[in-house]
């Protein structure tokens, strides 16, 4: 019995230690901006733009497609079902609360975590395996400055921008679904605009920032912690995506509880 409690305690300590290391890494990354050499800023800017290109620009078709299909399905069903009970006004609540405020940020973050989070972790783990981290250190370049900071900022901006895209496409696809099911465009926009508040927009944006921080931190943390064997690359990528997804879901629940 004592052995079991002890084993449970060990697992708890391990999790807390890992969480503490992750939090410390996040503070280190945020603080890196202040210690970034002036000359290094143009290099970091270049890496940042590259990250935004891979994470945001290249993901636009995927996010637009997911958002469009999801919104079309949900709104088509809602118009039919709510129309039968004369409650089409609830359509606005559905698209604003369910899609713009909850599903938009969540699905966007999960997509970016799966697509770019794994890429970041695998890339940094490969940097470690190939001795590139040591080489950077040897040149007097802090790997957090060169590798982590631009990816961190890139992930935040990308998730934020993609959530806005998701919401816009969702509203437009919802319009298509509503019109296809006999509702006029003017009526659809009346309902949606009556339901949306500044708080919904603010919450959606705040989620984008927070989920972006998770995706910018967790994969970089696992990538840099990888060992020097090539087999560590997929391990780091796997751990990064799992922890990111869990983190995103937990934080989504925290947002719901607090809002």
């Amino acid at each position: 019995m004592i052995a079991r409690i002890s084993a449970l305690g060990n697992v708890g300590v391990r999790w807390l230690t890992r969480f503490g290391a992750l939090a410390s890494f996040l503070f280190l990354t945020v603080g890196a901006w202040a210690s970034l050499p002036r000359a290094g800023r143009r290099v970091v800017r270049r890496v940042f733009l590259n990250q935004v290109w891979f994470t945001a620009i290249q993901a636009i078709p995927l996010i637009a497609m997911l958002s469009g299909i999801l919104s079309f399905i949900v709104i088509s069903q809602a118009v039919r079902e709510l129309g039968q009970i004369g409650a089409t006004e609830l359509l606005g609540t559905l698209i604003v609360v369910a899609i713009v405020r909850e599903l938009g940020p969540l699905l966007t973050a999960l997509t970016v975590a799966g697509r770019s989070g794994t890429a970041i972790a695998a890339e940094l783990a490969t940097n470690r395996v190939m001795g590139e981290i040591d080489a950077l250190e040897g040149m007097g370049i802090d790997p957090v400055h060169y590798l982590v900071l631009p990816r961190f900022l890139g992930a935040i901006c990308s998730v934020f921008g993609l959530i806005i895209l998701f919401d816009i496409v969702a509203v437009l696809a919802g319009l298509g679904a509503a019109v296809a099911n006999g509702m006029t465009a003017a009526r659809y926009f009346d309902i949606v605009l009556a339901s949306i508040t500044f708080r919904d927009v603010w919450l959606s944006g705040a989620k984008g920032m927070v989920f972006g921080i998770v995706i910018g931190t967790v994969p970089a943390f696992h990538g840099l912690r990888a060992g020097k064997a090539a087999t560590q690359v997929p391990v780091a990528a796997g751990q990064a995506v799992v922890v990111s997804i869990v983190g995103i879901f937990v934080l989504a629940a925290v947002f719901v509880a607090l809002s």
Binding site: T126, N127, M130, G131, E132, D134, A135, L136, G138, M139
Partner: peptide, 11 residues
């Protein structure tokens, strides 16, 4: 510093 294995960034 010339590291073992060159340490060139592959990308």
């Amino acid at each position: 510093y010339l590291p073992a294995g060159n340490g060139l960034l592959q990308n």
